[in-house]
């Protein structure tokens, strides 16, 4: 029972991390607290295994390590873009042609970007990955 509870700490920690990002827009470049919880869970699993080896504990230890390695790989390596922030998006660069590009909005209305300013002195474009 203790081994199962220790193991469940790992997916729970990952789930909390995902929920914080997707539901509350709390983004953590290095989710240290989650790493610590996972490390503690792995330590507990290892201690329990040393106290008494059985297939159930071996399985939970293995599963815990798989989840921990996946979370570490995802947060530290996979999710980082291979290229730095592009220079084309830096302040001072002019993109006059984009003003003529036409985009449809959620109503299907298609307008060139120039017409989205609505009399304002600038427009803040928030690029996002999409909604799925």
């Amino acid at each position: 029972m203790k081994a199962l509870a220790s193991f469940l700490l790992i997916p729970a920690s990952i789930a909390v991390y995902v929920a914080l990002a997707t539901r509350f827009a709390i983004y953590q470049r290095y989710p240290v607290a989650h790493y610590l919880v996972i490390a503690c869970a792995l330590l507990l699993l290892a201690i329990l295994l040393v106290r008494g080896v059985n297939w159930w504990r071996l399985l939970l230890n293995g599963g815990g390590w798989v989840l921990a390695i996946f979370f570490g790989w995802w947060t530290l390596a996979y999710s980082t873009y291979e290229t730095p922030a592009p220079e084309a998006a830096l302040a001072g660069v002019q993109h006059s042609t984009v003003l003529e590009l036409v985009q449809s909005d959620e109503t299907g209305s298609a307008l060139p970007l120039r017409d989205r300013f609505g009399g304002n002195r600038a427009i803040l474009l928030a690029f996002y990955r999409g909604y799925w």
Partner: peptide, 26 residues
């Protein structure tokens, strides 16, 4: 798109921007 905020002036000049280096960190 890579997550980014781009402030564009009426002449098409980027006035300010912030681009994600990691898709988990918007």
């Amino acid at each position: 798109a890579r997550p980014a905020l781009i402030l564009l002036g009426t002449d098409g000049t980027v006035l300010w921007s912030e681009t994600a280096e990691n898709y988990r960190v918007r």
